[in-house]
Amino acid sequence: MLDHAPAPLDDATLQALTTVLAPIGRLTHAEPLTGGMFATTYRATLADGERVVVKTAPTATERLLRHELDLLRTEALVYGLAADRPDLLMPRVLLIDLTRSVLPSDVLVVSHLDGTPLVDLGGLDDATHCVVQGELGAFMARLHTVRGDRFGYPNAAAGLQAATWPDAFAAIVGALLDDAEAWRVDLPADRVRAVLRRHAAALAEAPGPVLVHTDLWPGNLFVDPATGSLVGVIDTERALWGDPMLELVGADQRGLGPVPPALLEGYRSAGGELALGTPAGDARLWLYRMWISLVLVVEMVPRGYTGDWVAGHRADALANLHAALDALDWRLGTIAVRGPRPWSAAPRAAPRRI
């Protein structure tokens, strides 16, 4: 699904992929897809010419955050929910192997999507950017018609579920703070917990539980490069049952500015409505900006990120965390005192989180 120059696969990996894919076809070619910093993904071609994508979960589970346990099973679950919904633009599950008998992790095989990853298109003209944002908003609204029974992450291994959204969200944030403590990531944990308590009533006004992708950044969106039309969505491994407004921060993980009008119009055009502009809705948006900033800061340590971009990435995420806390501490819905970072079409020098 991602077109980057791959390195050749070793014989052992090719043999393992051949064995895994045998129930659906004979492997004739495979190559790794680079750019991910979580799962390992391969594009494989079968003897009948069909191309498929093989995804394996990380084997070093001791380096996973709590909410990342069994994520490949969540991805398969969501694709299954979308199987009879072509309007959700997701791959079809062709095979899932949870035995870990061939490869040392869960394996998911899905259909290959057409289109180009939005992150690979570079700068878009204003008209195409509006098309992309409008179609993304409409997709969000369609996805949010899928409803669940409980709030939180569907993967039972994480244990981050509850009957109410305030309880589920508090558990999700609490797990991140526990992970931070375990990995010795310095965070204003007491301030985060105080903000959660103070704004529990705003969380209680959230609708749901609906299916939220939580990671709709441009690397997970496939578009028609000629028109900007959205043609595919991948990597649902971090999906959860929650407040639809949470989707906004997953789509723009480093932005603090206004949500693009074209995205909101697309959401409304597909029958959705978000609570932006209300005291409770604005409080929740800042809470979710706090949450995504926590994720970005905490995950860097167990991932072992390296490179020139790391210091700036961490500084930006920490600045956004404090900006969200300031907004929640002072006056809800106003621009944070540290200044807004506009909604961005793509993260700057940020890792692909697939």
Rank of each mutant, 00 (worst) to 15 (best):
S229C: 13
P218T: 07
V223R: 13
T236D: 02
L248W: 10
L230T: 11
L211N: 05
L230A: 04
G232S: 00
A251C: 03
D235Y: 07
G242T: 11
M245F: 00
T227H: 06
D252E: 11
P218Q: 05
R238W: 02
M245I: 14
V223G: 06
V233Q: 02
S229G: 13
P225A: 13
T227N: 05
T227I: 07
D243G: 05
S229I: 00
G232T: 06
M245H: 07
D235S: 07
R238F: 01
R254P: 00
D235Q: 01
G228Q: 11
T227R: 11
W241I: 08
W241Q: 02
G232C: 03
H213F: 08
L221T: 05
A251F: 09
A239C: 12
I234H: 04
T236A: 15
G242Y: 10
V212E: 10
L230M: 11
E247Q: 08
D215R: 08
L240V: 04
V231M: 03
I234F: 07
L248P: 04
G250A: 12
L230G: 07
G228Y: 10
W217R: 14
T236E: 01
L248Q: 13
G228C: 03
V233P: 09
P218G: 01
P244R: 14
V231F: 03
G242H: 10
P244N: 09
A239T: 14
P244H: 13
P218N: 08
G219F: 08
V231L: 09
V223I: 12
V233F: 02
M245Y: 00
T214H: 14
T214E: 10
D224I: 09
T227K: 09
G219R: 02
V249T: 15
L248F: 11
V231H: 09
F222L: 15
A239V: 08
D224S: 05
P244W: 13
G219N: 14
W241K: 01
W241F: 14
W241P: 04
V233G: 09
L240W: 14
D224Q: 03
L230I: 02
G250S: 01
A239W: 00
P244M: 14
G232I: 10
G250L: 07
T227F: 01
V249N: 14
M245K: 00
G219V: 04
S229L: 03
D235F: 06
Q253C: 08
D235N: 10
P225Q: 11
P218Y: 01
L211W: 05
L248S: 01
L221D: 01
Q253H: 09
E247V: 03
P244Y: 06
P225W: 11
L230W: 12
W217G: 00
L211G: 11
G219Q: 03
W241V: 09
L211F: 02
D252H: 03
G232E: 02
H213P: 09
L221I: 15
D224Y: 04
N220R: 09
W241Y: 13
D235G: 02
F222W: 00
I234K: 11
L221V: 13
Q253G: 14
L211E: 06
L246N: 14
T236F: 15
A251G: 15
L216C: 13
W217C: 03
D243K: 06
L216Y: 06
P244D: 08
F222H: 15
D252A: 11
D224L: 10
L211Y: 07
L230V: 05
F222S: 05
R238M: 09
L216I: 04
S229R: 15
L240D: 03
A226S: 13
Q253A: 15
